[in-house]
């Protein structure tokens, strides 16, 4: 009980940081066993701070902190494990997007160990320039499940019957997949076999990727409740710039 408020050498990633007073920063982290935690890094903006070069996103960190209130005090920061190749370009933007999802959806100080493991492997995938879309979709699916908004890819929402490969379905964010027969008005129809492929994490087919993207965009927008993801806005601005030269 006495030392309960001290956490040592916790594998973590920094999600975001913001200045706090002249010399300190608030760092928002995602840790393996404590989930989302906010820490104050005292003096981290001083030129000689021991934290300075570690407090960066996408680095595998090992952090120690203490404190009982919501804002803990960072005690120690180290690099932990293999240094990843630098993430670049669209992969880097995608990594920022994952951070913003984590900041927007995870409850504070609740462990999400599976999601943490998937985040680490997603960063690894990004650093190796693996295809972006499947990585994002897998992360979004698991994240929604872990925060209690799982999309049911196995059964039809009204009848609870298993999804059938050769039937057509309609996706409704707050319900799930509804047989097309019960829903004629929706313009977005998903084939049963596509839903099955997403459920198996098999994104090799282009149609599966396109449908999965739509489904997850709708779900995430629905759960964001009107809030806009800033990283998406920046992503779009960059794409617009790219198009115009």
């Amino acid at each position: 009980m006495a030392r309960k408020d001290i956490v040592e050498h916790e594998p973590s990633y920094l999600m975001h940081q913001m200045p706090y007073s002249e010399t300190s920063q608030i760092v928002r982290i995602f840790s393996q066993n404590y989930g989302r935690v906010d820490l104050i890094a005292k003096g981290s903006k001083r030129p000689k701070s021991k934290f300075r070069s570690f407090l960066q996103p996408f680095l595998p960190l090992q952090l120690s902190w203490s404190g009982k209130s919501q804002l803990k005090t960072l005690r120690q920061a180290e690099i932990h494990g293999q240094y990843l190749a630098r993430i670049q370009g669209k992969h880097l933007l995608s990594a920022y997007y994952l951070n913003e999802l984590i900041l927007s959806f995870l409850r504070m100080e609740d462990p999400y160990q599976n999601l943490f493991a998937l985040y680490a492997s997603a960063l690894h995938g990004f650093s190796e320039s693996n295809p972006i879309e499947p990585i994002l979709r897998q992360f979004e699916i698991l994240m929604l499940a872990e925060i209690g908004y799982a999309i049911n890819f196995e059964t039809e929402a009204l009848s609870q019957k298993p999804i059938e490969a050769d039937l057509d379905y309609v996706f409704i964010a707050e319900q799930g997949f509804v047989s097309k027969r019960n829903h004629n008005s929706s313009p977005f129809v998903v084939k049963g076999q596509v839903i099955q492929a997403i459920n198996q994490g098999n994104f090799s087919d282009q149609e599966t990727l396109v449908c999965a993207k739509k489904i997850l965009r709708w779900s995430i927008q629905y759960h964001l409740d009107g809030k806009e993801l800033k990283s998406k806005k920046v992503f779009k601005a960059i794409e617009r710039q790219d198009g115009s030269k």
């Binding site: 999600m15 975001h16 933007l93 920022y96 997007y97 951070n99 913003e100 900041l103 800033k230 990283s231 806005k233 920046v234 992503f235 601005a237 960059i238 710039q241």
Partner: peptide
């Protein structure tokens, strides 16, 4: 550039 703060090419006047 800081995507999470919404700072992109427009804000930096690219």
């Amino acid at each position: 550039l800081s995507p999470i703060d919404g700072i992109g090419p427009d804000e930096l006047k690219i």
